[in-house]
Amino acid sequence: MGGVSTGGRDPGLQPERTRLAWRRTTLSSTVAAVLAVKTALHAGTSAGFVVCALCCALWLGFLWVAHHRIRALTTSPRPAALAPRHATAAVLCAVAMAVCAAVLVV
């Protein structure tokens, strides 16, 4: 492959860019989770605390997926494609957080 240097490092830094994209996405999910926790604790009810715990768990779930992918991207110079299972898990965390938000708002 012409684009890959002999050192095994991609001069286009594709794995690094993808790793940073995962970092940015983790940051976005952190912001969403912080807003969720603020809303849940603002409600002050016991249901609010349950939703707060749920949002924290979802955030940890997303962190776990991102951590796995980032590790895969850093260890191999030519990482395998993202597994659909992990993509779905990340998306389901976001969807579940939106459902929590809908429960809190209404």
Binding site: Q14, P15, R17, T18, A21, W22, R24, T25, S28, S29, V31, A32, L35, P79, A81, L82, A87, A90, V91, A94, M97, A98, A101, A102, V105
Partner: peptide, 21 residues
């Protein structure tokens, strides 16, 4: 990997919309 980054960009958009909510 480019496809994955596009996916992540859309996921960030989704998270921003949820945060906006």
């Amino acid at each position: 990997l480019a496809n994955e980054r596009t996916f992540l960009a859309w996921l960030r958009t989704a998270l921003a919309l949820i945060g906006g909510g």
